[in-house]
Design a protein around this nucleic acid. Structure first.
Lengths: 215, 215
DNA sequence: CCTCTAGGTGAAAAACATTTCACCCATCTA
DNA sequence: TAGATGGGTGAAATGTTTTTCACCTAGAGG
């Protein structure tokens, strides 16, 4: 059902509520709405609100002071931290201490859900590519990498993953074979490396979901 | 005066209010706060609120239901639409009708200000690379390009720009010479092209500020 | 002409909320 | 040890808000 049309008066009430919420941080009372629309009786206002609720523009909590909620509030003021994911931009760590990744973040970046693919926002973070090892695949040094934290065990063979090798965070194609894995670069001047799964010199963070670069 | 420190209990109250406002779109009542912190008397809550107000964390309207306002509300829930730029993801157009660019957008993407460089948010839009002509520079077909709309006249020589050539939007290095410009690819299998500034077969949109790619 | 709908008035009842008052109990500090 | 200060209890008084009732007006349509 496409949202039912509002009458002139109902629209005025709705717009007043929107404006009020945005500027005051809370919904208005019936009397305040009445004052704004020159309606002396709260009952008059009440009828408009009932209409707005039936047409799906607002939701109300009975017997509650200021119990008015904009239905698309999610798409409006508060959606904020829930709708626009803000991902941690992690700082330098070394492979021996992967637990420090989320500590002391350098900042956070708003990231459109599109770039999280189907990944869980909670498990994602952003790191910067430390070398040009994947330049052949369009990932350059300094690029911002949206990484989904995941155990090496759950990684598909051949995905591009972010890995901490010693002091630097790099992107590589990941290949698991037994209890060791190969990290293959996409740039002939870099060479393939193999590590055992628990070598402290190397920690696999997870697959790279997106790449972003400032020019 | 740096914001005065909150005691454990005051902090709990403050955090509860924040969470409540964010999720419910309105401030809580004293009783609701009391219920959350296991305080049976509204007076107990009242004291915490007085403390929070004196320390500058909230503002209150006397004798008003839910008369609590977060002081940095502006920096919190509402700043929203202004703080996280949402850029238009433009649809296919042909070079002869650049005016249609912002019409019928395919969607919008939240973009961290970091990726707008110093560009004016209003003048930015997002298009997708139509070919692999710049793969040598790390821009692949399908990549999301943050473009700052700008007249060809104001473009610096050698910048990577987004251009409509016929039906497709592509990235190329831009070189102006007199009243014609050269579009140079960074991929040997593509060839350089030259256009006169008002050739309807080619329209320069503007410099590319950032590149984003889903993997 | 009758009826339905949108939009109102006024007043009182019933819920909700905030204030205020009187006291209580820790802990810390001059 | 006498204040402060932080944190609470309980209850009553005072305000604010929402609901409900009864009734009114004008315009649109059958």
């Amino acid at each position: 059902m496409p949202p039912a049309r509002l009458t002139e008066r109902q629209d005025q009430a709705y717009e007043f509520i929107r404006a009020y919420v945005r500027t005051r941080g809370k919904p208005p009372t019936l009397q305040e709405i009445g004052a704004a629309l020159s309606i002396r009786s709260t009952n008059g206002v009440s009828k408009h609100l009932r209409a707005l609720e039936q047409k799906g523009y607002i939701r109300r909590t009975p017997n509650e002071a200021r119990g008015i909620a904009l239905v698309d509030a999610a798409a409006d003021p508060y959606a904020f931290d829930t709708e626009v994911p803000s991902l941690l931009l992690v700082s330098r760590t070394d492979s021996a201490h992967p637990g420090r990744l989320r500590l002391r973040p350098k900042g956070a970046l708003f990231t459109d859900p599109l770039f999280l693919e189907a990944a869980d926002e909670e498990k994602c973070l952003i790191g910067r590519a430390g070398d040009d090892g994947m330049s052949g695949a369009g990932i350059l040094k300094g690029d911002y990498l949206v990484i989904e934290e995941k155990k090496w065990r759950q990684l598909d063979d051949g995905v591009i993953a972010a890995v901490l090798v010693g002091e630097s965070l790099v992107a590589r194609t990941f290949h698991l074979s037994g209890n060791r894995f190969r990290l293959r670069p996409a740039n002939r001047t870099y060479s393939e490396e193999t590590f055992t799964v628990k070598d402290p010199a190397c920690h696999v963070i997870g697959p790279i979901r997106s790449v972003m670069r400032r020019l």
